[in-house]
């Protein structure tokens, strides 16, 4: 099914391309959002990716590799968006203010942990975030990631290692800063 759509779209069939867009957009947008952590930048990256797919699809020799190639395009578009001048964005998290429904200690802890992880994740480079998303969100193996990124498997392992280490360092730095604030308060 997907292969047929790819083949038809590669020949210039606009209806097939529209169907391909419907099939692929959600997963591509999800990847872009998780790399960029910004809905507007992710939307721009998705649009650019779909246009690139339309323009470059005839050069995809093996239609069965469309999914991997589309991930490659969205990762590149996302890192390009991240490196470009970014919009100033602020993520607001709304917490329930009803005392009766106030979250328990575990729930507060989960929110705090998520916020801490969010701060640490945003400190990573776009390339580091991309490998973490491909591995931890899409569940790709290093071999699959190597195909998507067009780099050797060894380089994938290296990037994954350094990205995880950078995230851990960011989390620890955040933890130290929080402890300092609590002590001084």
């Amino acid at each position: 099914m997907l292969r047929e759509l790819v083949e038809r779209a590669a020949k210039g069939d606009e209806e097939a391309f529209a169907a391909l867009v419907q099939v692929s957009s959600d997963r591509l947008y999800a990847v872009a959002y998780r790399i960029l952590r910004d809905p507007y930048l992710a939307e721009d990256a998705l649009q650019q990716t779909l246009i690139t797919i339309w323009n470059e699809l005839p050069r995809l020799r093996d239609p069965d590799r469309f999914e991997a190639w589309s991930y490659r395009v969205i990762v590149r578009a996302s890192t390009a968006e991240a490196k470009r001048g970014k919009r100033a964005t602020t993520t607001l998290r709304l917490l329930p203010d009803d005392a009766d429904e106030a979250p328990g200690p575990d729930e507060f802890g989960a929110v705090a942990e998520r916020d801490r992880l969010d701060r640490g994740f945003r400190k990573l480079t776009a390339d580091q975030r991309a490998v973490l998303v491909l591995h931890h969100y899409l569940g790709l193996t290093p071999v699959d990631m190597a195909e998507v990124l067009g780099i050797p498997v060894g380089t994938v392992g290296s990037r994954l290692h350094y990205a995880t280490r950078a995230l851990r360092a960011a989390l620890e730095a955040d933890e130290r800063a929080t402890s300092t604030e609590e002590r001084s308060a």
Binding site: Q22, D26, Y29, A30, Y33, P39, D44, L46, Q47, R114
Partner: peptide, 11 residues
Amino acid sequence: GGPRRAPERAT
């Protein structure tokens, strides 16, 4: 966590 549905404007 996070959105999973692409905005129609882009598609």
